[in-house]
Design a protein around this nucleic acid. Structure first.
Lengths: 190, 190
DNA sequence: TAACAAAACTAACACTTGTTAGTTTAAATT
DNA sequence: AATTTAAACTAACAAGTGTTAGTTTTGTTA
């Protein structure tokens, strides 16, 4: 099953947006990259804003869906956290450009698109926070300020795409092994 | 000693750039925010690009200067890492807008400004990497992939400004206490 | 008060922006 | 072969962009 023209546009756009940012890419730039004229894009999409919205909501929804599943599983909080970290690695591999775009350009979403994105993000953070709280309640996690942990772990996971761009050589296996170690157990020898 | 008009422009610009991004802010927006006309800005600065360059290089240089000092100190690697974390917290407090701007908009630096920024950033990462290597050599740090640690710690430190924007209520003291714990010793009870 | 410098102004420039209208070409279906 | 549909095209729009030139206002110093 091949890609529709619309999907091709979105994939190309996500790469360009990642490289130079949403506002720095004109519809003429995007069209040129696809070998057509700017006006032709409008046979497939309704606005530049729609492209950004589709790119960002696509991955946002995937993240939220995954954490909602994990959240309900009968697992220790540590197992849940490990599963979440793995999921971030997987999605980052699959949707590198989309993810970079989400991180850098969500601020340029307008009206309804922005609202939907923020809702999904809040839902994700809330579930993540509850999993951490579960860990504290069950005595598995240290008594560290919850918001600091939420911030520090999620920030690292959200920006994994930067790491991929720089270090294609390093094995994904290494990341899958050492990232959970780093985030959960720290870097200092005990 | 009061601010020069040029400094006022840069401070206002850093706030606007943080809020909406470099490309989304026009010289007319910036001027309006200062209660003057766009053309008047050019009595004080030479281009929009210069404003971005000054904002970003200011903090970049401060970071590099600090790590160069720490680097040479006779301290254990752990003490050095703690000092670096404290420095990030301090600079983030003092230059929240500048920092957000550096993280989000460095990509829009041109030519010489971009080159100088990237040089400073590489210098910083290199020193940071060497400190981690020292820690591994001296047996203080675990045997975790170096690049993963560099990435994960620096990412968190670089985006502290996001945290400040959201959580003004939480004490800085909490952050100074719990962030080093989180990053160095992990979140799982041993 | 006259002279000077700092900092604002108006007006305009050349260029780029997202998008629309209407038309032509290419491919698929009847 | 005729018809329909998808996808490209040209041309143009109104609005916004960074920046320059030349002028006027404001505040300070001689």
């Amino acid at each position: 099953m091949s890609l529709t023209r619309k999907q091709e546009i979105i994939i190309t756009a996500s790469r360009l947006f990642k490289e130079r940012g949403y506002n720095a890419i004109s519809m003429r730039d995007l069209a040129a990259e696809m070998g057509i004229k700017a006006a032709s894009l409008y046979n497939h999409i309704s606005s530049k804003q729609e492209i950004l919205g589709l790119i960002i909501l696509k991955v946002s929804e995937e993240f939220t869906q995954h954490i909602n599943t994990i959240y309900l599983d009968e697992l220790s909080s540590i197992k849940k956290l490990e599963a979440i970290i793995q999921n971030h690695i997987e999605i980052t591999l699959k949707y590198t450009h989309h993810l970079a775009c989400m991180n850098n350009d969500w601020i340029h979403l307008e009206d309804e698109y922005k609202q939907r994105y923020l809702n999904l993000r809040n839902e994700y953070e809330s579930k993540f926070r509850q999993i951490l709280q579960q860990g504290k309640d069950e005595g598995e996690l240290k008594d560290i300020d919850l918001e600091i942990v939420v911030f520090s772990v999620l920030t690292t996971l959200r920006t994994l795409h930067i790491w991929y761009a720089k270090k294609t050589s390093i094995q994904v296996a290494t990341l899958q092994q050492d990232l959970p170690k780093t985030l959960l157990y720290g870097i200092v020898k005990s």
